[in-house]
Amino acid sequence: MMPNTEIYNLRVNGKNHEVRDAWVGESLLYVLRERLGLPGSKGACEQGECGSCTVIMDGQAVCSCLVMAATAIDAEIKTIEGLTPDGELTEVQDAFITEGGVQCGFCTPGLVVAIEHLLDNNQSPTEIEIKEAISGNICRCTGYGRIFEAVQTAVATRRAAR
């Protein structure tokens, strides 16, 4: 398949988006933020060392800054904006607020996506599994304590809901 690099389509949060006049080297993060009006994914390092740009691509949590957008034309991409219908919050998002897991909030969308991905694949993660799952998401404000607490709360809430 040889897509036209001047115009290509990305499937994000269940919708098709047309990308026009893009430079081939643009990362998925750039295209999401600057071309598709989805600024929820954040950029803080551009080299996969902070996790702020984490999205789900074909069922895997990946750093969108390391995905060449033009190569993702047939992928199913889910961003922070696509986690819930507008105005609703997931258990994870809710727990981040109630447990104080948010300070400046810049790392938060990436962390929320990474944790949603963890909990979708592991309903009762151990403490060390939680830590490993978010070891690629740097938070500079919280020291992670309230984030660990938020994950535990989200796990309990999800369990209670089952």
């Binding site: 081939v24 080297g25 990362s27 551009e46 080299q47 390391l66 995905v67 060449m68 190569t71």
Partner: peptide, 21 residues
């Protein structure tokens, strides 16, 4: 480009400007 974890860093940092991929 395979996973992109090396190449995209070079592109993001302006060290490489590929034309054909």
């Amino acid at each position: 480009i395979q996973g992109g974890t090396d190449l995209m860093v070079e592109i993001n940092f302006n060290h490489r400007k590929p034309t054909d991929v």
